[in-house]
Design a protein around this nucleic acid. Sequence first.
DNA 1: TGACATTCTTAGCCAATCCTAATAATGTTG
DNA 2: CAACATTATTAGGATTGGCTAAGAATGTCA
Lengths: 251, 251
Amino acid sequence: MDITESRQLTASLEDYIEAIFWIVSAKGAARARDIAKRLGVKASSVTGALQVLAKKKYVNYAPYEVVTLTSEGLEEAKRIIRMHEVLRDFFVNVLGIKSKIAEEGACKLEHNIPKPIFDRLIEFMEFIETCPRAGKYWTDKFIKQCNLKKARECEKCIEQSIKSFKKERTMTQTSREITLADLMPKEKGVVLKMNRRNSVTKRLADMGVVRGALIEVERVAPLGDPIDVKVKGYHLSLRKEEAVNIIISRG
Amino acid sequence: MDITESRQLTASLEDYIEAIFWIVSAKGAARARDIAKRLGVKASSVTGALQVLAKKKYVNYAPYEVVTLTSEGLEEAKRIIRMHEVLRDFFVNVLGIKSKIAEEGACKLEHNIPKPIFDRLIEFMEFIETCPRAGKYWTDKFIKQCNLKKARECEKCIEQSIKSFKKERTMTQTSREITLADLMPKEKGVVLKMNRRNSVTKRLADMGVVRGALIEVERVAPLGDPIDVKVKGYHLSLRKEEAVNIIISRG
DNA sequence: TGACATTCTTAGCCAATCCTAATAATGTTG
DNA sequence: CAACATTATTAGGATTGGCTAAGAATGTCA
Ligand SMILES: [Mn+2]
Ligand SMILES: [Mn+2]
Ligand SMILES: [Mn+2]
Ligand SMILES: [Mn+2]
């Protein structure tokens, strides 16, 4: 009925975009054969999918030539990969699932998750990481217990928990405020304050860099600029002058 | 290639089975129109699905007659509904998602979850409910925080947590052992011991009634027999003489 | 019982997504 | 550059799962 080309993406097409993204990341461009291999389909199926994706303007494609993503395609790829990674991290870090099964499961489910559930899952994972009553030790406890098929020793856990609560409390009281630029790769912090209000902070706020959010440093360039961080499943790249305006507490 | 009829079920067919189960539960038998309405498809699509399901032996079907599930169909229905309910309960009870979105999301995802992930999710939900460091108050805290978009007051939470840990510890020490038959509907307990080893306890063990498992009483018949319980997402019906052999601690 | 309404099935269509087999384009190498 | 290998596309087909439209079966009620 509508004359305009539908830009709708099916689960299958999303997987093609995802695959193309990763192959392009690794090799600069994707060939049909690479895509076929990665997705476990025949080359003729890839040609068909590419023609559809090209019509929808998600890929740059001409017969017998290599494939890249358009800017719209790149946007979609990032969206899909964010879904994939959040789910995978939940499976691995919280549920303690083995990496391979977690990847496969994430890639099956990533296309069907309602947005409110996805958003809340991210918040929940943050809550687990930052709440003093849970934390890494707590999830590890769960995973270990599952793998050992062993009853919990709550007595010990409670005692240790009370101790670490008290320690954390005194630490929190004495710890100085630092900025995001002070963190090393793999370190995490909780956003306390954003010093400037401008278009950049607004963009960050849309991505979830708000008071209370958990932020993780992924990479820091040699001269400390830019800084790659992860917030709410988004991978962001910040300039140092932006990072120093984000006041955080280590944790 | 294989001459035998495939019994493979697609996501769509699983939804038909699920729908038929609920309609039969409510009305004794399902008509094509009921199914069409529930799934939001046209009646002709239902006829097609029913013909496929009948060939695969999941439904009792003859043209113009009402539909019921075969015993294989019933088994599948229970499996699918267990998936659905576990996911829904995770979304509602842990993530604090609104019931309608949780139902829809569960029904989308239920067909694609790898078994190890599903199993571990159940264990994780049990862990949250039974670990003294988490518990209902903890998840409520998370949900409330999300809905109010309000920073956590960890100080208070920690203090209260320490207090309730100590209280729980003394309670646990003084509490007498009771059996599953002593619980009222909606009460939960953790399995401490199974007094008898026989085919019944073995069947229960397969369903997850083992030491440490969380078990919830759903309904108790007027004379206290049978007792409907939920364990690991399974709905089981136990006779009282079986229930008294399951030693639990309340909570 | 007969007319009309409702329900169900059939026939035919379409889109998505995979496949195989044949063919075309491209790359490699002596 | 010619022969051969590799890679990509096309053509044709199967399956799944929806749809509309037409008609058959069934139910209802005066
Ligand atoms: Mn994926
Ligand atoms: Mn995927
Ligand atoms: Mn369902
Ligand atoms: Mn479903």
